[in-house]
Amino acid sequence: MSSEALGIEVFDIMGVSLRVSLVATTLATAVSVPAGFLIAVREFCGKRTLVAVINSLMAMPTVVVGLLVYILLSRSGPLGFLGILYTPRAIVVGQFILALPIITALTYAATSSVDERVRKTAESLGATPAQSAWMVLKEGRLGIIAAVVAGFGRVIAEVGSAIMVGGNIRGYTRTMTTAIALETAKGNFALGITLGAVLMAVALSINLMVDTFLGRRS
């Protein structure tokens, strides 16, 4: 393969990786941030158990998620009628499940650590429940952004689920991590290392961007 073709392929793989991971992280953020926030601010029976379960799910092996999603999406599975197995959508589903507990748990931790007086102060100044909740989220935003970044880091670096439900199809569902696994298995260490370096560079760039943004805000 010429270096130009190689470059194009690496670029394509990077595009698939970023697309699926960003979509999965966005969807997980939309669910997990409100969930983590509500768990933190509401008192209910079984709260401690729920938090313990969510914390445990953060360590869920990616292959277990891959297996679960595979069972769900396979032709004979309950969601088989969707016909999305071995498509980027299937990878999004897997990564969404992986990101959920991380963003929820870290949002819960970030919101819990916001001074209780923030809500009381906002209410004392006439805020509605929604306005005071928004103020709590704003005061805990650094921790919440860190939660989203951690979720993104988890999904862009995972391989087990992506390979099981995506199928590692060249030009379609091949992500950087599945490509690294494949090239290493084929003995193409140079390409594997190149892809690994690109993956690290992407992760570092995103973290630096967030860090710069947070630095400006604070």
């Binding site: 001074d115 007086r117 923030v118 009381k120 102060t121 004392s124 005061e139």
Partner: peptide
């Protein structure tokens, strides 16, 4: 009606 708390908290 508004209340100023003892040891008030200012938002960031």
């Amino acid at each position: 009606v508004t209340m100023v708390h003892q040891a008030p908290l200012l938002f960031h």
